[in-house]
């Protein structure tokens, strides 16, 4: 499923073990803090404008008393064949050589077309300018830009952390390896349900896990080739 290694660049991917994930949402908050995601307040949230680059979808199955619950963390799947990309008229969202679905805020003119064509509904629009009541703005991460109104945003796989990890590997004159890049959500996960790494490297943990018989991808039938791999429950 992986794009042929035309490039030596790392191919970033994530694995989420649904058997471990408890739906605790620590990852959701971690992502918000790391990536300067604004809260929109109750009025806006009631209109469905709250932003969470990663969310935990919860599904009840069955009827009382035989109820089962399924939790599924959903973030941008960084699809190899990303349907969000071709529809953007101004190349504000495009694919990088490292397999990331990148979003250039400054290019985006806010057609919201990409969001409509993302089958995973992981794109978020800034309906208004973001607001942090002072001094909450002091907690903003200086390495992540704050998005203005009218632009689209979504999970970046913590691009700022990827850059740092890659630079470090380069400084040390080696390829990136597991542990060089740890996105904020992966870092905090209290059940260690998430893994991140270079799926182009057959020795990496994500590579190995992606070959597990529990592995699957969301909406595989659409041919989007997601770079987020889910490990199902059970043995």
């Amino acid at each position: 499923m992986i794009e042929e290694a035309k490039t030596k660049k790392p191919q970033w991917a994530m694995v989420i073990d649904l058997d471990r994930c408890t739906g605790c949402e620590a990852c959701v908050v971690a992502c918000r803090v790391e990536n300067n995601i604004p809260t929109v307040g109750p009025e806006e949230a009631a209109k469905g404008r709250s932003i969470n680059w990663i969310r935990i979808e919860r599904y009840f199955e069955g009827e009382y008393p035989d109820v089962k619950v399924k939790f599924m963390p959903v973030l941008c799947q960084h699809c190899e064949e990303a349907p969000c990309e071709p529809v953007c008229p101004v190349y504000a969202t495009y694919h990088t050589e490292e397999g990331l679905n990148a979003q250039v805020y400054n290019r985006c003119i806010g057609t919201r077309y990409c969001a409509n064509n993302c089958p995973y509904t992981v794109r978020f629009f800034n309906f208004f300018d973001p607001k942090w009541d002072a001094p909450l703005d002091k907690a903003l991460n200086p390495e992540v830009s704050v998005r203005s109104r009218g632009v689209m945003e979504k999970c970046t796989f913590c691009i700022q952390r990827i850059r740092k990890g890659e630079e470090k590997a380069k400084d040390e004159g080696r390829e990136v390896r597991d542990g060089d890049v740890v996105p904020a959500c992966v870092q905090t996960c209290p059940t260690r349900a998430m893994y991140f790494g270079n799926i182009g490297d057959s020795e990496s943990e994500v590579s190995k896990l992606s070959k597990s018989n529990r592995a699957s991808r969301l909406l595989e039938e659409l041919g989007t080739k997601p770079r987020v791999i889910y490990l199902n429950k059970g043995d």
């Binding site: 620590a26 803090v33 907690a139 991460n141 870092q187 996960c189 209290p190």
Partner: peptide, 23 residues
């Protein structure tokens, strides 16, 4: 200015992880 909190990997309780509140 503080801009992120993470779990302390050496800490025997949480070994680097943190819950939603802690974040």
């Amino acid at each position: 200015k503080a801009n992120k909190i993470e779990g302390n990997p050496l800490h025997p309780v949480n070994r680097g992880a943190l819950c939603a509140r802690g974040q």
